[in-house]
Nucleic acid binder design. Sequence first.
DNA 1: AGGAATTTGTGCGTATGTATC
DNA 2: AGATACATACGCACAAATTCC
Lengths: 234, 234
Amino acid sequence: MRSSKGSLPVYLQIAETLVRDITAGRLIDGEKLPPERDMANELGIAVGTLRKTLAELHNRGLLERIQGSGNYIRAVTDPQSVYAMFRLELISGGGFPTAEVLSISREVKPEELPPFGTSKEGHRIRRLRRIAGKAAAIEEIWLDGSYTNEIEVGDLSESLYLYYRTRLGLWIAKAEDHIDLGHVPDWSPDTFNPKCGEPIPHVLRISYSHEGGTAEISHTWYDPSVARYVNRLR
Amino acid sequence: MRSSKGSLPVYLQIAETLVRDITAGRLIDGEKLPPERDMANELGIAVGTLRKTLAELHNRGLLERIQGSGNYIRAVTDPQSVYAMFRLELISGGGFPTAEVLSISREVKPEELPPFGTSKEGHRIRRLRRIAGKAAAIEEIWLDGSYTNEIEVGDLSESLYLYYRTRLGLWIAKAEDHIDLGHVPDWSPDTFNPKCGEPIPHVLRISYSHEGGTAEISHTWYDPSVARYVNRLR
DNA sequence: AGGAATTTGTGCGTATGTATC
DNA sequence: AGATACATACGCACAAATTCC
């Protein structure tokens, strides 16, 4: 008998194990599950309980249920984790994002930048973004100068927003996205400079705010033939 | 005894009557339903069947279920404006969005569409979107077939999502956006067909979900030289 | 404060309908 | 047409959360 004290209901426990099986590759796309009665017997639960599990997986889009035929796995992409603040993925979907810091400097905010923050200065961070190793975008990030005096390259090991939280105590509460057409800036690495005849890169402007106001404004130039914008709202 | 030949399952029949009661104002916001056993008795159905009905309403976001307390109608009129679900504006900023229905039909979902919903069929709605009177985008919307049997052009006077809420009892809880490059479909009005040499239109794919799963998937083709994507996250 | 009553949540087992193979 | 498999529906028992006295 399955214990259920202080833990998830049985039907959700089963759901979680199945989700793990799917993400671990033990259950692959298109795979047909055993008949519900058999499966319930193997698991030692009632058919009705198993059906609640399967309904839950169907709701999450992980399972296709065909009356008279069977239950079929729908392999699905990633759970959101590190990707929470990164809204680009490969055209083909997914891809692991990495960031390579090109430069960090503290400068007076330029005129073109929309007004934000309390300081006249800002930290200018330029990064090359790769998705699955492929150069996909460049970023120019302006963090308001009031949050810290200096940022070192070593501080931004991988996740900029992890640094914001753990070192600056800065939580992102709001965000605003714009997508426009535009030209890549002159400091762009050669690897990213567009070839003649290709589509004009997009500019994805994102401003991050906490409750006290806007803390950061970033511009991302990405090549629409390589990456696409994705946004998942809770 | 309720007949169920050739028609909806009992638990969905009850759901439909409750949705009508809500949209007609016979059940108002915050109202507490009778205990499940009493309600099932009045309706002449089993508690388990009624619970399936209530789960369905909860899925659509119409009902709040609190263990130990009761079931409460949740029919709040949306505080967000008409623009809440539209993420395009003029390049210059702003602009009043309107929608013109081009066609509505009920069809078997095509293969290319990502799997969503519980029905094999869907409602296919094609619209021309104008911003400040200027043709800016075309939409193809697929609403899962399980929510209603038929949609008439007259039903969608102005806001599609108002129709969803008031007529289908469907509340949108989650959304997912994608932006890709793509070609306009062949049914696009002449007013929107791209001229030679202009940038390729963008495809903005949006899926809308309530708590139980995805209800609608829409594709929006917009001209990036006319409109831009904007998203303001709370 | 505390315990009893109320109400929904979970789980089981069974019977029958209906779509698919 | 028969077998298989999922969908619906019923009823019951107990657990957990809330409410009320």
